[in-house]
Amino acid sequence: MAPEPYLGPETHTPVRHHILSVLVENKAGVLARVAGLFARRGFNIYSLAVAPAELHERFSRITIVVDAESAPLEQIVGQLYKLVNVVDISDLAPSDAVERELLLATIPTNVDSRTGLLDVIGEANAAIVDVDAHHVTVMLAGTPHGCDAFEKALESYEGVELHRTGRVALPRLGTPPESEKDPE
């Protein structure tokens, strides 16, 4: 009997995830180098976001949420540093980070369902950013968990088109220095 095709895990976030903020040279092929490294070493990426870095067009910042179960973080960081185009890596444990992500969803709607939908949107603190007679497009900029919850809440609606950006993160202010923290 043929094995079932891979359907993926039911939850989005791995049990132990970690955030790597990787400053790279803004050169052709750098994203392929980073993605290729993860693929050939068997490191799992949960989400990945790329954008020009602050200060300079010379650099870009890649925010990678890695599955820390798939490989020791030390290995992932050590291998990343070997990419010549990688300039700097800061790794953030979820507890030390402020993580945010953007969700956009277009939901088919009609007069009957609109009130209920507005409640769901209101509860999630999402904003309506576009409307026509048969749809609303909503935006939620929130924590990954908030986005997960909102996505779940939208599951009961048919024909939803939903996109998420993958998260970005910054160190939480007032995080104690590395030496004073418990190891994971």
Binding site: P72, E74, Q75, G78, Q79, Y81, K82
Partner: peptide, 8 residues
């Protein structure tokens, strides 16, 4: 010389 070898 390559830190990625440590604990690999």
């Amino acid at each position: 010389i390559d830190r990625a070898e440590f604990n690999k």
